[in-house]
């Protein structure tokens, strides 16, 4: 079937098997292999991308369901030489080792920082109301859908904490 996807600001027309997941559309049909496949079952977060600004597991949704959605992948937020601040933070704090979970971590964190700014509470939030302060515990809870078997969690939290603070200071 023919579908049109809006990815990182580019319109892409694809002829796909209707069973193709959004993740496989990116990886197998568009050469956008930055989004990783760790489980294909929504269990690891390696495939996290943004759809209309919200983070989703792209392995859990079919490409055919995303006509007209605004899709952002890791390739769309920075490249070597022009990295996003969060990407630079991951390098500086060594928030990865093998790098396989990393694009998913970064996409997830990108959306998570905005969720917190919008006041979404989490399991560890002291209250369901009011502003969210992104403590290490809040960051860790909100990032627990992104597994890292290399276990770079200490650096991941540091990189996100720093990016969230920079984002806050820029307001």
């Amino acid at each position: 079937m023919e579908i049109t996807l809006d990815i990182n600001g580019d319109r892409q027309v694809l002829d796909l098997d209707p069973r193709t997941s959004l993740l496989d559309a990116l990886r197998h049909h568009l050469g956008l292999t930055g989004s990783k496949k760790g489980c294909d079952h929504g269990q690891c977060g390696a495939c996290t991308i943004l759809v209309n600004g919200r983070r989703i597991n792209s392995c859990l949704t079919l490409a055919a369901m995303h006509e007209d959605d605004e899709i952002t992948t890791i390739e769309g937020i920075g490249r070597p030489g022009h990295l996003a601040p969060l990407q630079e933070g991951f390098v500086r704090h060594d928030g990865f080792q093998c790098g396989y979970c990393t694009p998913g971590q970064i996409m997830s964190a990108t959306a998570m920082i905005e969720e917190a700014r919008e006041g979404w509470p989490s399991y560890v939030s002291p209250s369901l109301e009011g502003d969210i302060e992104l403590s290490d515990e809040e960051i860790a809870e909100r990032m627990s859908g992104n597994l890292c078997r290399c276990a770079a969690y200490t650096g991941i939290v540091q990189a996100i904490r720093e990016a969230a603070e920079t984002r806050e200071a820029a307001e």
């Binding site: 496949k37 070597p80 990865f96 790098g99 694009p103 970064i106």
Partner: peptide, 21 residues
């Protein structure tokens, strides 16, 4: 020092085994 391949990994440009077309 930072990992030299870091920028490739954090930007999704490091190509792993299954990712060659």
């Amino acid at each position: 020092q930072d990992r030299p391949e870091g920028p490739l990994k954090v930007s999704g440009r490091a190509v792993y085994a299954a990712e060659h077309e």
